[in-house]
Nucleic acid binder design. Structure first.
Lengths: 351, 351
DNA sequence: CTGAAAGCGCTTACAG
DNA sequence: CTGAAAGCGCTTACAG
């Protein structure tokens, strides 16, 4: 028998066989071409249902799994979704990441995480690296990015959803986003404190990222409305947020402005630290001074007194943003391109 | 001029041009073959230094960046490193992830994160998905995995470093790992409480993952040594760890075993919750009962009283494990294949 | 030390 | 609706 006339099994003569089950193995088993197998497996319309069936049977019998690298190379699109968050040391963003990642994984996507440290040029560099992988989608925190980053996002043509922030209501051509109105939340919590009879409400903040600043604006406008705004009630510290810093800020405020009767901390960790400091210093909360936080982080309901705060729907934001991105990647237009998930004032014992 | 004899620019006739700068663009500019350009750029020995120089100049002039998908497909190895951690809701693992990810990124690797939720079959499934991407390396939490997972790790041939745990000292053929001895840490903290005159030391735990159990064994052996062990001093709850649960456990212990004079909580969040509960119930710490935690999580130094605990080097573990993995990926044998980073007893006010 | 060629495992115009 | 062929952008035996 003339060996040369036998159909050669491809891998048997390859000098770089990998042993992997490939699409052409499936195609051969199903008696169709690789093109058809490829189309059948990806659920492309315009394939004979009978062939789809045969290919699927062959595929699962052989235990075929597509090679992501080959797929990415051929289609110019990977199964990665890139996500950009500021910090891993803030539970808020970890909750966001966790929820988004869970949703994306269920849909077959791998999450590529990038931590920007609130640094615009680090964000830009991370985005560059992520775009090399030709992600199928992009999830980015906030709406504030430098010009190069925005250009990279645009020219990449990759579907993108922004997390946490919402654009001004009247903004035309608004990007896709899921979040809530930080400014409103800040104003709302402040009005809550006012409604309880507080007159001298300080605002204490750390980190001073864009969302913190929006809460500040909300606080300002509520106090201005009430005719109670004073610039000296602002205590802004650019250092990273922490319980310890909350304690420091609390002492500082009590000392510099003894007449203050409430403090709105821009984040729960600061407020928790303030509550501990109050306990330590014997300052009674809320009778001497009310304390409120933001985000309802873990532990806030265990403080003594329990902490009044704003519950923010971060897990739901992560999930909804991932869902919106999934529909964009399918080529669909989301029902609500700017999705407001709201917030809730949680009155507890500290106010 | 006979057009057909002109060298055709490759992309100009392609029906699928991507516009990307490719290796062959660089090779052409440097006047070498693609093979040589490839070898020069990857720093393979056996390339003329003069050519390396020319290729590098051409590469940076053109702004060439290699395509990770093409590279992965051709070499059967991506620039991904997969990391498997149990939870994102425990700051411990987030610190691990953060440190590892930072170190790997600096070396040019993308981190692929998988969250197992302490579920062996979810871990197995995640590992399968990650291995499809042909990661260059693997970082996994703990040494306890099901048989299939272990087999997947072995047969994949991917270099792997285990995080947090260390094998028994006499184990032959031990895997690469970076961590500390949980059992010793548990025993050490218990001995510390004993040295302060405590006689009835309870052990309270949640989650009950392998590392928690090791701390339990350490506590047991220290109490047995002292002739003070009693099974009824163990309070084990499989629910997830949280401040709230710590409060519940504290109340329960105080009620069921009023003679207890110290409690060793397996994690700081439980201990923090217990401290808050003590404050609420008016149980004085440490005079009535000492409280100790584990891990020195954020906030423990801000409690009232501040929390005695064990400082664990999780950031250093993440970084050192990533470094060890990097050397394995380079084909080098790590100097210390089982790296013990130790722990530190932090005596504060609660004991 | 260098290059031509094959190959990695897919997708996708193109032609039928 | 289907298939043959080209192509994605690299790496790597192989031959020299």
């Amino acid at each position: 028998m003339p060996q040369a006339h036998l159909p050669l099994v491809k891998n048997s003569k390859s000098h770089r066989a990998t042993g992997r089950i490939t699409l052409s193995d499936v195609a051969r088993a199903a008696g169709v071409s690789s093109s058809t197998a490829s189309r059948a497996l990806r659920g492309e319309r315009a394939v004979d249902p009978a062939l789809i069936e045969r290919v699927q049977v062959a595929s699962s019998k052989l235990g075929y799994v597509p090679d992501p690298a080959a797929r990415a190379l051929a289609s110019q699109r990977s199964n990665h979704v890139a996500i950009l968050i500021p910090l891993l040391s803030n539970a808020l963003f970890v909750d966001l990441l966790d929820a988004a990642q869970k949703t994306l994984r269920a849909a077959g996507y791998q999450t590529l995480m990038g931590v920007t440290h609130y640094d615009a040029s680090e964000e830009e560099q991370l985005l560059r690296e992520q775009l090399l992988h030709r992600p199928a989608g992009l999830l980015v925190t906030g709406l504030d990015h430098n010009a190069v980053t925005r250009k990279l996002m645009d020219s990449s043509q990759v579907p993108c959803v922004h997390l946490m922030d919402l654009p001004a209501t009247d903004q035309a051509d608004a990007p896709y986003c899921v979040g809530f109105r930080q400014t409103e939340a800040g104003a709302s919590l402040t009005r809550h404190l006012l409604s309880q009879g507080r007159k001298r409400i300080a605002f204490a903040a750390a980190q001073l990222d864009p969302r913190v600043m929006q809460r500040l604006y909300g606080w300002r406008s509520a106090l201005q409305e009430a005719g109670l705004y004073e610039p000296t009630l602002e205590f802004l510290n650019p250092a990273p947020s922490s319980l310890a810093l909350g304690g420091v800020l609390f002492e500082q405020i009590m000392q510099q402005r003894p007449a203050v009767d409430a403090i709105f901390f821009c984040n729960d960790d600061l407020a928790q630290g303030a509550l501990m400091a109050a306990l330590r210093l014997g300052v009674s909360v809320p009778s001497r001074v009310a304390i409120a936080g933001f985000n309802d982080l873990t532990g806030s309901d265990q403080m003594l007194p329990t902490l009044t705060t704003v519950r923010t729907p971060r897990a739901r934001i992560g999930e909804a943003a991932a869902q919106m991105l999934l529909s964009l990647m399918r080529g669909e237009e989301p029902a609500t391109p700017q999705l407001d998930l709201g917030f809730e004032i949680l009155q507890r014992q500290s106010s």
